[in-house]
């Protein structure tokens, strides 16, 4: 079936189980509303909850999305799992563009988003006065987040967001190969066509998107290079430092250059 006949509707994805920090699977698997538990108690339960989700997943490959940095629990267990059962595709985007995108998603100014990205202990969904569909997640700083995953004890495939734009087929071929999924180039191209950014924007305009924050669009611009145009010089310099750290680390890890500066 060609993409025009089978448009992807992101609202039909099983988001409750797809997002690693979603509240619902924790409630179902643990048996009490996470609202009764502290963030630390929820975190302690997450590795086991993830194992149950993976065990009960209908397909052989359990794919989930996480915003968390790769951190360890007080007893030494990794929050997000390790070899041989877990592997990760890390989507790395340049910090200046992340700042613009995060400011929109978090409902903040760009400067506030940069502050969060430079703060070592940044966490989201950490407010104590309200419930949210996701539980507390530690993000750390932008460079802390990237470094945590680059040093994680699991197989990692780093995909650069900018490469998805400039060399889409090659980039997604890498992802598909990493996952061990059998897909031809034409399958990959069909999938890319069906999930084209403007198409997703159209669906959100028409029907909304479940992951969008209140009164804000999720599929905002999808362009690269906006950060360098919109960030103040001072904010750019603060993120430049973090970017340099990651470039260095990627060089040491043999992962080539950091995210493109476009």
């Amino acid at each position: 079936m060609c993409p025009e006949e089978s448009p992807v509707d992101p609202n039909q994805l099983p988001l409750n189980n797809l997002i690693a920090a979603a509240r619902s699977p924790l409630h179902e698997i643990v048996g009490v509303p996470p609202a009764l538990l502290t963030p630390d108690e929820c975190e302690n339960l997450r590795p086991d909850v993830d194992r149950v989700v993976a065990r009960d997943w209908a397909q052989p490959l359990c794919l989930r999305k996480a915003h968390d940095a790769y951190t360890f629990l007080p007893d030494g267990r990794p929050l997000m799992g390790g070899r041989p059962d877990f592997a990760a595709i890390y989507i790395l985007r340049n910090p200046w563009d992340v700042a613009v995108s995060a400011a929109n998603h978090w409902g903040q100014t760009i400067e506030q988003a940069v502050n969060m990205m430079c703060e070592e202990n940044t966490a989201i969904e950490s407010r104590k006065d309200r419930s949210s569909p996701q539980i507390h997640q530690r993000l750390l700083s932008w460079s802390g987040h990237v470094a945590s995953w680059l040093k994680a004890p699991l197989d990692l495939c780093v995909l650069r967001y900018e490469d998805m734009h400039s060399r889409p087929l090659e980039t997604f071929q890498r992802a598909v190969r990493f996952l061990g999924v059998q897909a031809s180039d034409s399958d990959i191209q069909s999938a890319m066509e069906a999930s084209r950014f403007d198409r997703l924007q159209g669906i959100e305009r028409e029907r909304g998107f479940l992951e969008a924050a209140k009164n804000r669009r999720f599929f905002r611009s999808g362009r690269t290079g906006e950060g360098r145009q919109l960030l103040s010089e001072q904010d750019q310099r603060r993120l430049d430092k973090q970017f340099e750290e990651i470039e260095k680390l990627l060089g040491q890890k043999g992962q080539g250059q950091g995210p493109a500066q476009s």
């Binding site: 029907r207 479940l210 992951e211 009164n215």
Partner: peptide, 11 residues
Amino acid sequence: RNPRSTSHLIR
């Protein structure tokens, strides 16, 4: 009720 029906466009 959908988990995030607070989204401005979900109607």
